[in-house]
């Protein structure tokens, strides 16, 4: 691996001679790691990678969002239209429905998954619980199965003709007859949210459980001596200690919810009507059904802006980027 602990490092003059004699990249790296540029050197590979992949698409996207450009009409070419496409979007009634849906989807999705994940993690975290190790792996499975399979299997579970969940609910007397959960504007969004809750809660359980495990026992013991109840301990110790994990997990999951419509595509494809239509579906539809890349770019830029603002606020309030 790295021969940086060779004598050369202990004795700077040796090191120079060493290098003059025989060029050793590891020595050079070792030396570099002592310099003030090291922070940037470490950051460089990933930063370059991210720069290479992100700058051009985002820049091109912003440029396109001011152009009228349809991929299928090469003959029409590109035409600068300024903010026209943004203005048109905000003039459309449907656009507000789509934004509202996206908001519902992300807020309810992230919150429900967080809460269920938290409760599960709290239960798993009790020391007196047996079989926790097996339960932890089993509870992760929904998050592991590919979304194509997850989507179709839930479509089958909730199907209005073949669905076992309908069968059980009828048997329990909760329902009179099989329901078509994805066909009604009232139940479609809750049904998709339920599926995503199933899929997303393990992510939070995994991270929050890990976070809880790292909280020193002494803190709880001290609180117990003071006569704190379980709830008080949770509020005074667990929650504050968990904040960084909650922030990191929350932001990752939130962004994932905004940007990955894969479950939605299988289950409702935005329907019925516009009941489950979200921004990510909209961008995909405009780009690859309608080939209106100009307008799709405008939607993407709007999404980026909204996410940026939220993430910045989130970072600010949680203090995750503060120098500690």
């Amino acid at each position: 691996m790295n021969p940086s602990s060779s004598p050369s490092v202990n004795n700077p003059s040796d090191a120079i001679k060493h290098q003059v004699k025989r060029f050793n990249p590891f020595d050079l790296l070792g030396k570099l790691s002592e310099s003030r540029y090291w922070a940037y050197v470490l950051l460089a590979p990933s930063l370059l990678l991210v720069l290479a992949v992100i700058v051009y698409p985002v820049g091109y996207g912003i440029f396109l969002s001011f152009q009228q450009f349809n991929l299928m009409r090469a003959a029409l070419g590109m035409k600068f239209v300024g903010l026209e496409q943004y203005i048109e979007l905000f003039q459309e009634e449907d656009f507000y429905i789509i934004i509202k849906n996206t908001f519902t989807w992300v807020v309810f999705g992230a919150c429900s998954q967080f809460l269920v994940g938290l409760i599960t993690a709290l239960a798993l975290n009790r020391k007196s619980i047996r079989g926790g190790a097996v339960a932890r792996v089993l509870l992760l499975l929904p998050w592991i199965i590919p979304s194509v399979v997850a989507g179709h299997m839930w479509a089958l579970l909730l199907d209005s003709r073949l669905g076992v969940i309908n069968d059980i609910l009828v048997w329990l007397g909760v329902l009179d007859s099989y329901q078509a959960w994805f066909a009604s504007a009232k139940t479609a969004m809750p049904a998709v949210l339920l599926v995503d809750l199933w899929r997303g809660f393990p992510f939070f359980t995994l991270l929050l459980y890990a976070g809880m495990q790292s909280i020193p026992d002494e803190l709880y013991e001290a609180a117990e001596v003071d006569g704190a109840t379980g709830w008080q301990k949770f509020i005074a110790i667990t929650l504050p200690m968990l904040t960084p994990v909650i922030v990191a997990a929350g932001i990752l999951r939130g962004i994932a919810l905004v940007n990955s419509p894969d479950l939605m595509i299988v289950l409702t494809n935005g329907g019925p009507g516009l009941a489950t239509f979200t921004l990510s579906l909209y961008a995909f539809q405009i780009a690859y059904d309608n080939f209106n890349f100009g307008a799709a770019a405008a939607v993407s830029v709007i999404m980026l802006m909204i996410l940026m603002v939220f993430t910045m606020l989130y970072f600010k309030f949680s203090g995750v980027t503060k120098n500690t």
């Binding site: 199907d159 209005s160 003709r161 066909a183 409702t268």
Partner: peptide
Amino acid sequence: PSVTNDSFRQ
């Protein structure tokens, strides 16, 4: 009643 979600499969 499932009509609005009924595609080919359904």
